[in-house]
């Protein structure tokens, strides 16, 4: 009897410790920044004086339109006032999707590249067959909230998000927009709660493949088996992108797997990854990057 109590107390102690450390992980991820050097596309410079590049540390969890107001104002002074349109960003001929978190774009296109990340700013020839238009911050908020809703639809049949009040939704958004960890996580904690003991109904994840660029992969995937076994990152990848495995038996991959800037061990349970490595939009964004 004593032994059992000891064990369970020890488990509680371990669990508490793990939870405290896990909270530090959330904080570390939230604090991630990408050093970026923005330059105006040289063929769009209209003034005699060439603008200096613009350096910023951009939060990985944020979106470019929330971070580039000053970049836009600065460069707008140097473009043809009669021939410019919506601003868009490009890295090595690759238009950057503003509706993806900055950290995900970095993992996809520059995880092995030099720092700072050199991004070109354009005000002409908006590639509207590739990029969503971003008429205002409302568009970013709408996109963010729609993604959070979709994630909760997968995790909890949307019960958590639908039971929240409008002000809670607003707090999620302003927390992200103003880079306020506590403000954001006070609400997000509820979205990350499990239904019962096991885990989420389905895992909100998207797999982004670079070179060749393809639409992201998103499927229904239960993070926990009916028998209560935790599925791992390897299980998820084998189910959704089996072609990246070198063979059927080993876990040797043909590409690198990035989530939140790191290569997590393949034996990591996806339920844990979802709770700790998801972006604020509540999706686990996995970037598959070819070895250089």
């Amino acid at each position: 009897m004593q032994l059992i109590i000891d064990t369970s107390i020890r488990q509680i102690v371990i669990k508490t410790k793990v939870m405290a450390e896990d909270r530090e992980i959330l904080r570390e991820i939230w604090d991630g920044r990408v050093p970026i050097c923005f330059s105006l596309a040289s063929d769009e410079i209209f003034t005699l004086e060439h603008p200096d590049p613009f350096f910023l540390l951009v939060p990985r969890q944020s979106y470019f339109p929330l971070a580039t107001d000053r970049v836009q104002r600065t460069f707008l002074k140097h473009v043809d006032p009669d021939n410019h349109g919506e601003m868009w960003l490009e890295y090595e001929s690759q238009p950057l999707k503003w509706h993806y978190p900055v950290g995900l774009l970095f993992d996809m296109y520059n995880s092995k590249g030099p720092l700072p990340w050199n991004i070109t700013v354009h005000f002409q020839n908006f590639p509207e067959d590739e990029l969503l238009h971003c008429p205002s911050r409302d568009a970013v908020e709408a996109h963010f909230m729609a993604t959070v809703k979709e994630a909760d639809s997968l995790k909890h049949r949307a019960q958590v998000i639908n039971s929240m009040q409008k002000k809670d939704h607003k707090q999620l958004w302003t927390g992200l927009q103003n880079d306020k960890f506590d403000q954001f996580w006070t609400i997000n904690r509820k979205l990350m709660e499990r239904l019962g003991e096991e885990g989420f109904k389905y895992l909100p994840f998207r797999i982004h493949q670079v070179l060749p660029e393809k639409p992201f992969i998103q499927k229904l995937f239960k993070p926990v088996s009916d028998e209560g076994r935790l599925f791992t990152l390897a299980d998820l990848l084998r189910e959704t992108v089996p072609h990246i495995f070198a063979d059927d038996t080993s876990d040797v991959l043909r590409c690198e797997v990035y989530i939140q800037g790191v290569n997590p061990p393949l034996e990591t349970p996806v339920q844990w990854l979802s709770e700790h490595f998801s972006y604020p939009d509540n999706f686990l964004h996995i970037a598959l990057v070819n070895p250089s």
């Binding site: 999707k97 509706h99 509207e128 067959d129 590739e130 990029l131 969503l132 238009h133 568009a139 709408a142 996109h143 729609a146 660029e213 393809k214 639409p215 992201f216 998103q218």
Partner: peptide
């Protein structure tokens, strides 16, 4: 109503 990435075509 918003612009989104088409889930199959990947275009706006």
């Amino acid at each position: 109503l918003t612009q989104q990435e088409h889930p199959i075509l990947g275009r706006p």
